[in-house]
Amino acid sequence: MKKIAIRIASVLFCIGVLIDTTPESILWLWRTKAWVHPVLERLGLSQGDWPLFAPNPVLNNGVIVAELSDRNGNPATWTSTDWEKASAWTKFYRFRHMNYHQRLTNTHLAAVDFAEYLRLAVPDRESAVGSIRWSQDNQMLDPAPIEPPVREVKLYKYRNSIVLEEGQALPRLEQTIWSTQINFLARSDAQP
């Protein structure tokens, strides 16, 4: 009896894994995948396909930036770690942070929660830097200290991508031209 149970469970596991890991581009399996994946998810065994740097690598360099304004309307900026400049050890023990900053653009709901977290956490748990202000007569003023509570947070991803002209050979590292694109992610306002 035990042997029969093992046989059946093993065959089911193998079929489930093979269907669930099939690349999404294989369209004829789409319906079966759509049925199998939720079943595996309930069992805690879902995985989906494995597009490791595939079909093409996607550059995801950059930082998360939050523009804040405090109770007096003074502006400030929170910036995530610049992972390009972090040490290998920092990238190891803070790997979850790096992963989070890179994946925050994928899910709007997660970005909304993070904007809300920053609104409540600055300046006690997260530090932000006051930004330059402009007076009514257009004079530059020094940054003012942040006075909680923070009234508004706008969250952006500053994504660094490579500028390549059509037909151009791939440039050497020091000749690579980078451009920064700013993508709006989410906003959080204090309730009136």
Binding site: V17, T22, D49, P51, L52, A54, P55, N56, P57
Partner: peptide
């Protein structure tokens, strides 16, 4: 089987990529 599925899945995905 699990390890094989990972390698097969990623290889199939990569074969579709221009780069």
């Amino acid at each position: 089987v699990q390890m094989t599925a990972i390698y097969a899945s990623t290889a199939l995905s990569k074969l579709e990529g221009s780069t």
